[in-house]
Structure formats: structure tokens, C-alpha cells
Design a protein around this nucleic acid. Structure first.
Lengths: 236, 236
DNA sequence: GGTAGCGAGTTGTTCAACAATCCGACAAGG
DNA sequence: CCTTGTCGGATTGTTGAACAACTCGCTACC
């Protein structure tokens, strides 16, 4: 049980790694989870607009699952704040208000700048993940695919958060970015919302590569402040 | 829609406050949520030990709810990481390992020290919430009620997090503390685990009251480091 | 004009059934 | 003795139907 030192078998079994990989394949997700995945994707893609009501009957028929299973999926997304559930009235795609946007940026600032400050030395791979997200954003911008620019931009911020090396922080950040998508769709008019930030991201990455964490944290803080203001302006 | 200035009605309606209170009573929560609340309480109380299997049939019979409703409650708690769900095998009370404890403290450090640094000026009420938690811990310690000391200690850290003024950060912190309870129960032997920290909390509160945020953040950081190490030692 | 009540439609919850899967037991074979 | 194949009971996954509880728009009435 303690240290894995069985006598006749080498410690580094070649197939014990396979086991870990196959587990994710074998571990079939439940129907409710797959339904939740589909709905989540539709929401962050903007196919399901904020405020849309999801009736159990029609949604269940459309997805080919029973009401009970669908309700389980709804619960998951309500917990992620992508749907709101009003008792005896149904579930709706969440509509963010100004307070929500403010709080989302507040929490992001906490996580992202904290992650930068907590990263004493930055491994090469994590820096690579950051710059990779930036170049993806640049390429998408060159093709004027603004939705993809937004996606790449999110990936940049998730890579920043990953500097903390915390699975829980990563998951929290993932939920926050999903929630933010709701706000982006609310301000559908400005497709070029993300563009000006690519250069700022590049600069932050350079500061990180130079090891100037404090400057990077400050730059990110400024970034978030202006982005928040811009998003709030679009709400009025 | 904008500012609430309806002409013929005074802004501060006396019954508008009643509305907010009654809402929590009228807005009956769903059965699944109440079941989840009960299970959550049992878990953080330690009545349901980590590793315990919760069979749908017996648990449903014990709580007097149907299997479907119970499954909805399970989903919620799985999402909160208090239960783990293994496909076709059932749900179990989560068993934390050393990595989990490390990550929990990492995330807490991010949130709590970040909240302190983000708090430019501390409102009186928030400082009061912090000191109130400390005195509660002291009183519980005087009565040697160590479980209550732990609860009050959690409330102290939640009050620290509340300095950020972010509902989302508060909710995240609440989940993290609930998850940490699982670790405390794993180290059931040391009931006096919480006691030495009361004085440290008091010192942090003093630093906050003096407005020395940086020193408070550093003290809290040290606190978390030693607490983490002590908990990890108890795991071996 | 306001209001009380009706009724259709939706959600909340339970129940029963069946398919898919896990787990322990037991037997056969090396 | 250990491994492997097989079987059957028990549990979970998912569905569909049923009924209670509730919301909301409509209508009739004062």
C-alpha cells in the first residue's frame, strides 16, 4: 500500500499509463452531463440568447432525453450560473446586469493578479501556453473572426490563472469566463471589442517572460479595469 | 427602470423590506435543495464520514424522497466536491488526499490575501464581522467545544474574504471551507487543531484595524502556510 | 376600472419499469 | 495457490406516465 515496490514487477509499468488514458474514454459520462455540455456550448456560442426560456417539454423532445434527465442537466448549469431557475416558472438563460459584470471583473482581478504574484518561477510550458493563446488571437484577428478572437483571449486569461498551479483556481476561472460570455453577447454590437487587447496581452506576456511579475500584475490590473469599463459602457 | 424614483410613492416603502424577508419564506426551495442542505450539513458535521457510500435506495427511503429527487441533490453536492460520483457505482463522501489539501490552501491564499490587498478602506461593519468571529472562537475555546471553534474559525476566514466585497468570491470561499471540513475530519485525532490560531487571528484583525494591509496579508500568508503544513503532517 | 376566479399549460415530485453495469461467489483449469 | 470464466443478485441509469402545485392570461362581474 505504501511505496509501490512490488518485487517482481518493474515500478514503471508501461501499461499503467495506458490505464490512466483509457479511463477517460471508458468513463462514459452520463446523459445528463452530455446534455449539459451541449447546452453550455450553445450558450457560450450565443446560439441560446440570454433571457431565453428553456421549457422542459420542448427542450427534452429536441434533445431526445427524458424530463428527469434534462432536469439534472439544468441543475448543473444553474449551479454554474449559466441558467437561472425560478421556482414553478422554469429555467432561463442568465441575463447579466451591471453588478454581475463588476463582480466578475473583481473576481477575475483577484484570481489573475494573484496567480501572477504567486508564481515564483514560471515554467517554460506555462509561458508557452500564454504566448500560444496570444498568437491564436492574432491569427483569428487577421481573419476577422472576432468570436474566435474572444475564445483565444479567454484562453490567454486562463493560462494566466494557470500560473498559480491550482486545479481549483483553474476551474473557477473557467466558470468565470463562461459566465462572461453572457455579457459579451449582450453587447453584440461591438464585435471588435476584443481586438485592442491583443497587443496588451502581448506586452503582459513579455513582462512575464522577463520575470518582472510586479509590472505584469499591474499591467493586467489596468487591462481589467479598462475592459470592465468598456463592457459597462456598452450596457447603457 | 434606471433610478427608482416613482412619483407618487415614497422611495423607502416600509413593506418593501418585508418583501425581501418574506421572499425567503415564500420562495420555497425545491425538495432536492433541502435534501442537499441536509446532506451538506451532515457531511461538514462529520456525521457522514469521508468514504461513506450513499445508496440511492436506502438514502431515499431514509430521507423520504424519491430516487429522482435524491439524484438531483447528489448532483449538486458532487458539483460542490463534497461527494464524488462514480459511474454505475454510486456516490461517496469525498476523501481528500494530500494534493487536495495543498490545493485548497493554495486557493485560499489566493483569495484571502487578495481580498485584503484589494480592500482599500475597510468599512466598520466588515471589521466588526471579523472580530465577532474571533470572539466567538474564543468563547467556544473556553468551553472546549473544538468543533465550534473550527466553525468560528471558518467564519473568520470568510469575513476576511468578504473584504473583497465580491459575492462570487464569498461563495467560492464558502465552498472551499466546506471542502476543508472533510480534511479536518480525516485528522479527527487532533481536536485542538484550531486553538493556537485564535491568537493569530486576533493579531491579523488588529493589523487590519490599523490599516496596515500589507502586514496583515503577510501574517495571513504565514498563518496559512503553517496551518497547511500541520494538516499535511496529520495526513501521514 | 379594478378584481375575483376559472382554466390551460408548465413545473415539482413520485412511482414503476427496464436496460446497463458492478460485484461477489463459485467453479474450472493451469 | 492463483488465475480465469461465468452466473446471479443488487445497484445505478434512464425513461415514461401520472398527479399535485403553481403561474399566467382571460373572462365575467361588480
Amino acid at each position: 500500500m505504501g511505496s509501490p515496490s512490488t518485487p517482481d514487477q518493474a515500478d514503471a509499468d508501461p501499461w499503467s499509463d495506458l490505464l490512466a488514458d483509457n479511463r477517460s474514454v471508458l468513463d462514459r459520462t452520463s446523459t445528463a452531463e452530455r446534455v449539459a455540455d451541449a447546452l453550455r456550448q450553445w450558450i457560450i456560442d450565443g446560439r441560446l440568447r440570454p433571457g431565453t426560456r428553456l421549457s422542459e417539454h420542448s427542450a427534452g423532445k429536441a434533445l431526445g432525453v427524458s424530463r428527469n434527465t434534462l432536469r439534472e442537466a439544468f441543475r448543473l448549469l444553474v449551479h454554474e450560473r449559466l441558467l437561472v431557475h425560478e421556482f414553478h416558472r422554469g429555467v432561463f438563460v442568465r441575463v447579466l446586469d451591471a453588478d454581475d459584470v463588476t463582480d466578475l471583473y473583481r473576481t477575475r482581478r483577484l484570481l489573475e493578479t494573484g496567480a501572477i504574484r504567486a508564481a515564483s518561477d514560471i515554467p517554460q510550458e506555462r509561458l508557452a501556453a500564454i504566448t500560444s493563446a496570444i498568437t491564436a488571437a492574432e491569427e483569428a484577428a487577421a481573419k476577422e473572426r472576432w468570436l474566435d478572437v474572444g475564445t483565444a483571449n479567454m484562453r490567454f486569461h486562463q493560462a494566466i490563472t494557470a500560473l498559480a498551479g491550482s486545479p481549483r483556481a483553474d476551474e473557477i476561472m473557467q466558470q468565470l469566463t463562461a459566465e462572461l460570455r453572457l455579457a459579451f453577447h449582450a453587447t453584440s454590437a461591438l464585435r471588435r471589442f476584443h481586438e485592442p487587447y491583443i497587443e496588451l496581452n502581448r506586452r503582459i506576456a513579455r513582462l512575464l517572460a522577463d520575470g518582472d511579475l510586479d509590472a505584469a500584475a499591474h499591467a493586467l490590473d489596468d487591462y481589467l479595469t479598462t475592459a470592465q469599463r468598456q463592457l459597462l459602457d456598452a450596457f447603457a
